[in-house]
Design a protein around this nucleic acid. Structure first.
Lengths: 334, 334
DNA sequence: CCGCCAATTGTTATCGATAACATGATACCG
DNA sequence: CGGTATCATGTTATCGATAACAATTGGCGG
């Protein structure tokens, strides 16, 4: 049927040039107020829809901010994403989201694809990337932000926290309450770097506190969640009681472990302490509440938004590094 | 510094026309194999990045599929989204995601914005929209799919299930196990239509089974989750024991109620049955497991992908209506 | 050796909005 | 009343890739 309605069509209908239409729709104050209202009315009547693609092409500004997440199916990442969407939406920017499925190779592929959309900034979750990534984003004027981590050699700006410090809080707390034999419950070594860093943090902190070597309980390939924690403890049976505490890679995993332990009649925390990570809702509602670490997912999003605004306003020249920190949240499982 | 590298630059470097470069990069078999490899190599060396914006502009095909979700912070919607991302990614399409925050006005605003990007299809969650929505999407050749619902008067294609049928399964089960006094736990009336439909389904089914009128327990404004279910039951105290069963709008809410009930010493299901909705992970891992309804979030996503492929291949002319159904999943809370 | 076909590469115009510059109209000043 | 500032609108060129068509080359049959 009818081809797309363009500014040209609106211009013909009001008897003016496309340039005037363009100005009128953009609320340019140099156009006469009456002209502006008439243009808008006619545009409405014709069912005109603005073409952001043409604008992006002409102005070389896409209005996109590209974001990679390991997964949207994680309440904390989803929360950060929500904060980004809301904050950047107010600035007229739209998010282009990609999921890496916790794999750096997938991240690289994704970034390659996202870059073809000419985003105005690139926000990556995590500080571990393929070697190619650095070449990919350098040289371009593109602002890059890594979040949820504090990489030693960042690509650009950073808004994150130290995963190993966070685990050290947990281990310190457990050690000070007399727990000695710790097991770490997380994903198999390999893809998920964040999990590996947390594990290393636990091992290191345990050594620092003079505790016996930490055993790793493998809950399967990343991402691991409630059911994986549940299954692995259920499979172990009462053998799990040999440990004083299960230090879990995340709250969902901890909840799975907690549920399995309770089902086999273990008393938590009396027989076994369990700790989580991330301050997920389940940790606050479960019974008993799970001792965890608050990582302020929403705050990370807000800080990234503030940083981007500074960058777009030209207020920021050198790389920014923000540590949002983390805090132990006492529950009833330890 | 250096301006963006374009096909023109690559063409100059290899001593050929931009058209040949375009063909070479697109793997057009009419270009000589040697030419193609040389073009690709030079493009790599120059750090050429393809410009999807220009392509979208010239071809009038954006490569985008616009999707609205009430929230990404919901495991089921996130799961559908993941299935969409994976399925459409293989077809070279990218998702443009917007969150409506469970409000139809926000959805309209969002769709307006998304349409300016010239998406090749529009996928909406839910079948309730503002009156303007219909005008907004009609007339354009744009394929529209509503999912997660079975609207009476759809905008286009539909892939969903009946929320009231699903609730009827739950109520039928409760009635057949002798529960008579039911309370529905959900969000305040208003924004969240899906919740309202579920509530209406419960009320209607209860009447059909000759049960006393269902009481509504208001857990606060949408979206409601674990902590809201938890808080509202905690606030009621043992007064909640007057009911035979709590029919919750979702599994997270049910888990919150379960946890609160257990904390105050109620035995579930002996003193009180609790049911959820959505077959979330927490329902499978909690102790006791929560009786719920499986809505096959991933399957919805896959069906939408299949439908879109059919549409793009031109195999589909008239509106499709797919009911993915729902099934009672027996747990231990009823 | 001519002509036709296939293989390969080139030329031109175009998608819609807008920056930069130009023009026309009106007002206001000494 | 001439000249200049101000307001409102118009003209032209452009962003990068590619569809449609044109042109060139080499090969092969007759």
């Amino acid at each position: 049927m009818s081809a797309r309605v363009t500014m040209r069509d609106v211009a013909l209908a009001v008897g003016m040039s496309p340039m005037t239409v363009s100005r009128a729709l953009r609320d340019d104050r140099t156009v006469n107020a009456k002209t502006r209202t008439r243009v808008r009315q006619v545009a409405d009547e014709l069912g005109y829809v603005y073409d952001s693609t043409a604008q992006a092409f002409r102005t070389q500004k896409s209005g996109f901010v590209a974001v990679t997440l390991p997964s949207v199916n994680n309440a904390n990442f989803a929360e950060t994403f929500r904060a980004l969407t809301n904050g950047l939406g107010e600035a007229g920017l739209q998010l282009l989201l990609g999921s890496t499925n916790y794999r750096v190779e997938r991240e690289e592929e994704l970034v390659r694809q996202l870059l073809t959309r000419n985003p105005e900034a690139l926000v990556l979750t995590g500080g571990h990337h393929t070697d190619e990534m650095r070449k990919l984003v350098q040289g371009r004027g593109l602002p890059v932000i890594e979040m949820w981590d504090l990489p030693a050699d960042p690509l650009g700006h950073v808004v994150g926290f130290s995963n190993s410090d966070a685990m050290a809080h947990i281990v310190g707390h457990l050690a000070s309450t007399g727990r000695r034999k710790l097991a770490f419950v997380g994903a198999s070594e390999g893809a998920d770097m964040r999990g590996a860093v947390r594990r290393a943090g636990v091992v290191q902190a345990a050594r620092a506190h003079g505790l016996p070597e930490v055993v790793t309980i493998d809950a399967g390939p990343a991402p691991v969640s409630m059911r994986h924690g549940n299954a692995v403890i259920e499979a172990m049976g009462r053998e799990v009681a040999q440990y004083d505490a299960l230090v879990c890679v995340s709250d969902p995993v901890a909840f799975g472990c907690l549920s399995a332990a309770q089902r086999m009649g273990l008393r938590v925390p009396d027989d076994l302490a369990i700790t989580g990570f991330g301050h997920f809702e389940v940790a606050r509602v479960s019974n008993p509440r799970i001792t965890t670490v608050n990582v302020q997912a929403e705050d990370i999003g807000r800080q990234v938004v503030a940083l981007l605004q500074g960058i777009f306003d030209g207020d920021i020249d050198s790389p920014v590094r923000t540590d949002v920190g983390s805090a132990l949240v006492m529950g009833e499982t330890s």
